[in-house]
Computed example of a mutant assay.
Amino acid sequence: MKIKNFMSIAAALSLSLVLASCGSNTENAKNEPADNETKVEEKADDTADKAEETENTEENTADAPEEDKDEEEKAANPTGEEVSLTMVTDFGGVNDKSFNQSAYEGLQKAEEEGSAKFDYIESHKEADFVPNLESALDSESDIILTVGYALFPATDEAAEENPEQNYVIIDNANENDRENLLGVTFADHQNSFLVGYIAGMQSETNNVGFVGGIKGVIVDRFEYGFRAGVEQAAREKGEPITVQVQYANSFNDQAAGKNIADRMYQEGADVIFHAAGGVGIGVIEAAKENDKWVVGVDRDQQDEAPDNMLVSTVKGVGDAVRQIIDEYAQGKFEGGEQTFTLADGEAVTIAYADNGIVSQEIKDKVEEIKQQIIDGKIEVPENEEQAIDQGWIEK
């Protein structure tokens, strides 16, 4: 393994002993009189153990600020080991306000905690994938992290050609069972069902929209999970709800997203859910300009439209990345697959905007539906075939 151990066993044991007594003694140290050293000497004859305890207190007092910092870092990174990563993004880049940014923020948090150091390489077109992965290999990182299913072919090939290098791809399975590749996926259809239900219940026109990026297995989960959730709302309302669907054939063309959303709003939609990366920023702009509602994706996007955002699906990419880092530091990293679902808490969830638009009654019903999905009582489709077979949409 390439992890560097920054302390000897003896030093680690010593540090843990100091930290164990540091928490309570640091506060007391602030009120100690100036002659604390004299008091230690006076009590030195009581017992050897008591003298040693007092001496430790004095040492902690002298270094209190540094020890507090060490204690916080120790709690965040119990192994004391630092993992190096290089992240390769897809087209959106680290400021896409969506999927890539979530991964980037997770790495930033891990670096702040002292558990990782990282660099990143942004891709702007598909032709960038292979050379960017080659550049990442030059970094000699413990893990090369690729973000987005579009990167799978290049990542899979790199993993095959470099069996000693560890790879992680976010949002795609390890389709060819590479021993050095971990595929991380999320049950996006499940939380998409929840926001579809919210959109359907909230809609006043019984007309909602879905804007996708590029058609594929991943975005299918968003689309058909959403459409099934809308159908659940239609059944409860006893009224049909129209779902407009259009793809931008891009993940970064904001103008295309805005144009599509403008048309959908003009054709009667009052809520639109986007699963389109940077394209979705254009959808959000259209919602603001048309004074309509919008549903965010992958991370809490309410800051982009505080008065128009109903809710966002949240994909805990950052949390997943940090978990992978911790497992690597503990020697538990291995190739294979890992899938997060609604049952995994913050890894797959939703985030309501704090503007009070969605009623508490709807929120309570969503919690019931969420539990029914977790318990298997509601089956959520991942694609068109399943949606038809399960009766959510007509052929």
Rank of each mutant, 00 (worst) to 15 (best):
G282M: 02
E179K: 13
R235A: 14
E337K: 09
A76C: 08
V230A: 01
N5F: 10
Y167I: 08
T339F: 07
V295R: 02
Q330D: 12
N206I: 06
L342K: 02
S84G: 05
A276R: 05
F129Q: 05
G209V: 00
G216T: 13
K39A: 08
K377Y: 00
N259G: 06
A62F: 15
A286P: 03
E32Y: 15
V243T: 07
A29V: 10
I143A: 03
K125F: 08
P306K: 01
T38R: 12
V321T: 04
N180E: 08
V243S: 02
Y328C: 09
S14H: 13
N206S: 13
E41M: 14
D303W: 08
Q232T: 00
I284F: 09
I214H: 07
E134S: 09
N290F: 08
A199S: 15
T61D: 15
I284E: 11
N191D: 11
A343T: 00
K292A: 15
N100A: 04
E81T: 11
E231C: 04
G336H: 07
Q386H: 11
A269C: 13
N162K: 05
A320N: 04
E160G: 12
A10V: 13
E368Q: 12
I241E: 00
P65G: 07
E327I: 03
D68E: 12
H189D: 08
G209L: 05
S8N: 09
K97W: 09
E285T: 11
E59D: 11
F340H: 04
P33L: 08
G200E: 02
E384M: 09
T341I: 01
E385H: 13
P131Q: 02
A136T: 01
S16I: 07
A286S: 13
E223L: 15
R221T: 11
G391H: 00
E231F: 05
Y104R: 01
E304F: 12
Q190F: 01
W392I: 01
K288V: 10
K395F: 05
E334F: 03
A76N: 15
G257A: 14
V279R: 04
L19V: 04
E140N: 15
D319A: 14
G277P: 06
S203A: 11
